[in-house]
Design a protein around this nucleic acid. Structure first.
Length: 752
DNA sequence: AAAAAAC
């Protein structure tokens, strides 16, 4: 920029100068003043400067005086607030407010406010507001609410509310309750009740209540309540109740609940849960020894898992035979594309960036290499060597359950670290030394801060659903945890989509990552159909109910937690068995609801986006988005709950008119080919989607939770030592609220 | 922008 540029806004003294108007650009001030005498020359350099640089007193500029210049606030100088100096507030000197001297204010002389003379407020005299003349609100002409013509509420005609006419409530007229006429309650006049005249009631003559004469209440004569004389309840004489002879309640003799015979709940013999509790010793050194013993023992005698077919492609990826055998036992013999792509690289120790659609098998994609790597190593107390981070507790459970049998054959111990379940077990497991953690961020950070866990030995760190983990809210937690892991460790990052701030994480934490994207980040499952229904707001409820009343499993997605509760209730009121799932419920409720959805007793799940990602339930035939998703990624995640594993599925999005444009754009970016269609309840399209079944209209109730008798704690996971409290590990009454106590971590309150 | 994630 040249020094004398025409538009250089800075003048020599550094003040901002307004550029001249274009029209007068070539005129000097003199010339312009000559042409227009009213023209005021612009401020010269010595002209008074306005604003804070001005020499002008602040008060002249309409500002309050500077602190030191303000005289009026000095305590002793203030004239007006000194009580005794006030002139105008002196009570007796007031002229205008002197009660008796006011000319206008004399009550009886004021013309306008004289009660009876006021024209406009006088009820009967008002002209404008005269009751009978108002055209639209004329009281008497309104047919239904006309005061005097209403037959039922006319004051004088109502029989029952007239004070004096009411027969029954007039105190003195009551016939039945007249004090003096009541015969039976007057103490002295009762014929029977006179104390001395009662024939039977004479204290000493009454036979039946004589203390000593009673037969049945005589203490010594009662046979059945005498503690030692009872025959049936005599402890030692009971034949059936004898502790050692009762068959069914004897703890050790029960056949069905015999601890050692139950296969699945026996802690020590369950094959899949075997990891931590093998040893009965509580002394740490012994436990460690036992643990090592177990390892070598199992290594010597591997379970016979069947043979590996020659063409098993998992074997070709470089996985251990035992792992391949275990997979084959579950019928998993052909790797999904994402697995085939990432497993070799991950096994080679490289950092991997995996992008695959929901349901594409990402869990095994990172799980198998992780287990391979951790197998056979040595884990110190509190220093796990592997960590898998997931965004929701449900997902953590799912990953844990999926990897558990595989971890078992690889002799890798793993532990679910998530909120909502008791600390002690997690802390114990860590202290004992657990190889692999599957964790949600909050609890893991908590445990690290407590000193229960140390991530300094983590060789493999996995981030599942990375794009979600890189959300604004999650990012700090995730970076905190990744910062605690050694930089030279291997990092695997898996996600359906790789946008958001994923690249920030990738740049910071991954070394030369190998990227594998098996599919585009778009909807490409051919067995999934998409429908955008443009609906009237008033039809939303009934349409949702119609769609959800179909046979088979349905997930209804809504935007907010309150919305989930509300719609679930509405659906049940209309006869559709539905339950809400969101993060505001107790972990126990969340588990129960998900279990009920999985076992089919509740076919409709109304969920927030807590269920949008990763949750796998078979045979969800329809996803209804009662509220459109916030963005296209959410659409894909939600849609991914249906048409899993090659099944068929439909996604129906209810779109309100004002959401139409945004929804079309979203569908485009999601790669969904669907035209918005107008729809109302009962339409053919809706019938087609639901198979024609309609909600019954009769309210239904949620199934009661299964009675949990011997399986203490009430569930297959999150077992509490206190029966009856479900999974809620907290004390106290009332529902457990959101994990952070009903308060958001960002300090705002929930608003809906 | 809500939801999720710790007591």
């Amino acid at each position: 920029m040249t020094q004398h540029h025409q538009h250089d806004p800075e003048s020599a003294d550094g003040r901002i100068k307004k550029p001249r108007h274009k029209k007068h650009q070539n005129q000097s001030y003199g010339e312009r003043l000559a042409a227009d005498p009213s023209y005021e020359a612009p401020r010269a350099d010595n002209a008074p400067v306005k604003g804070y640089r001005s020499e002008q007193p602040r008060t002249d500029r309409g500002q309050r005086p500077n602190r030191d210049d303000r005289p009026t606030y000095k305590r002793d100088d203030r004239p007006s607030y000194n009580r005794d100096d006030r002139s105008s507030y002196n009570r007796d000197d007031r002229s205008r407010f002197n009660r008796d001297d006011r000319s206008q204010g004399n009550r009886d002389e004021r013309p306008r406010f004289n009660r009876d003379d006021r024209s406009s407020y006088n009820r009967d005299d008002r002209s404008r507001f005269n009751r009978d003349d108002r055209p639209r609100f004329n009281r008497d002409e309104r047919p239904r609410f006309n005061r005097d013509e209403r037959p039922r509420f006319n004051r004088d005609e109502r029989p029952s509310y007239n004070r004096d006419d009411r027969p029954s409530y007039n105190r003195d007229d009551r016939s039945r309750f007249n004090r003096d006429d009541r015969p039976s309650y007057n103490r002295d006049e009762r014929p029977q009740g006179n104390r001395d005249e009662r024939p039977q009631g004479n204290r000493d003559e009454r036979p039946r209540f004589n203390r000593d004469d009673r037969s049945s209440y005589n203490r010594s004569d009662r046979p059945s309540y005498n503690r030692d004389d009872r025959s049936r309840f005599n402890r030692d004489d009971r034949s059936q109740g004898n502790r050692d002879e009762r068959p069914s309640y004897n703890r050790d003799d029960r056949s069905r609940f015999n601890r050692d015979d139950r296969p699945s709940y026996n802690r020590d013999e369950r094959p899949r849960y075997n990891n931590e509790r093998d040893n009965k010793s509580f002394r740490r050194d012994e436990r460690v020894n036992n643990r090592d013993d177990r390892r070598s023992e199992q290594a010597e005698q591997p379970v016979d898992l069947g043979t590996v077919a020659d063409d098993n492609q998992f074997a070709a990826l470089g996985l251990a035979p035992r792992l391949v055998q275990r997979l084959a036992r579950d019928g998993i013999t052909t790797p999904f594309p994402i697995q085939a792509a990432t497993i070799p690289d991950a096994l080679a120790g490289k950092d991997v960036l995996g992008r695959g659609q929901t349901g594409s098998g990402k869990t095994l994609g990172f799980g198998l290499p992780t287990l391979m790597r951790l197998s056979g190593g040595h884990t110190e107390s509190r220093r796990p060597r592997g960590m898998i981070l997931v965004p929701t507790r449900e997902l953590a459970m799912q990953v844990h359950d999926a990897l558990e049998p595989l971890a078992h054959v690889m002799n890798v111990s793993l532990k679910l670290i998530a909120g909502g379940l008791p600390y002690p077990k997690q802390i114990d497991a860590l202290r004992r030394g657990v190889d692999l953690l599957i964790a949600t961020p909050g609890r893991l950070i908590d445990l690290c801060e407590q000193g229960a866990a140390d991530l300094g030995a983590v060789e493999v760190a996995v981030l599942d659903e990375a794009d979600h983990m890189c959300d604004m809210g999650f990012m700090p937690a995730v970076t905190t945890l990744l910062d605690m892991t050694p930089a030279e460790g291997q990092r695997l990052l898996f996600s359906a989509t790789l946008d958001n701030d994923v690249d920030k994480i990738v740049r910071t934490y991954l070394k030369d990552p190998v990227q594998h994207s098996t599919e585009s980040g778009q909807a490409s499952v051919s067995t999934m159909e998409h429908h955008l229904l443009v609906i009237e707001p008033a039809h939303k409820q009934s349409l949702t109910a119609e769609l959800a009343s179909r046979d088979g499993r349905t997930i209804v997605f809504v935007r907010t937690k309150l919305g989930a509760d509300r719609i679930a209730t509405q659906l049940r009121d209309r006869g559709v068995m539905a339950a809400a799932l969101h993060g505001g419920l107790t972990q126990g409720m969340r588990n129960r609801t998900l279990d009920q959805f999985k076992d089919g007793s509740v076919p409709v799940l109304v969920a927030t986006d807590v269920a949008a990602r990763g949750i796998h339930v078979d045979d969800v035939g329809l996803v209804v988005q009662a509220d459109p998703p916030a963005e296209h990624k959410d659409y894909l995640h939600r849609a991914g709950r249906t048409a899993r594993a090659g099944g068929k599925g439909a996604v129906v999005t209810l779109v309100l008119p004002h959401q139409r444009r945004g929804m079309i754009r979203m569908a485009e970016s999601a790669g969904v080919k669907a035209e918005p269609v107008r729809a109302r309840p009962g339409d053919e399209l809706v019938t087609e989607l639901t198979g024609g079944s309609k909600p019954s209209g009769y309210p239904v109730k949620l199934p009661a939770p299964k009675p949990q008798r011997f399986n203490k704690g009430g569930g297959k996971r999150f077992g509490s030592t206190r029966p009856g409290r479900g999974h809620d590990s907290r004390g106290g009454n009332g529902p457990r609220r959101n994990g952070n106590g009903g308060r958001r971590s960002d300090g705002k309150s929930y608003q809906h």
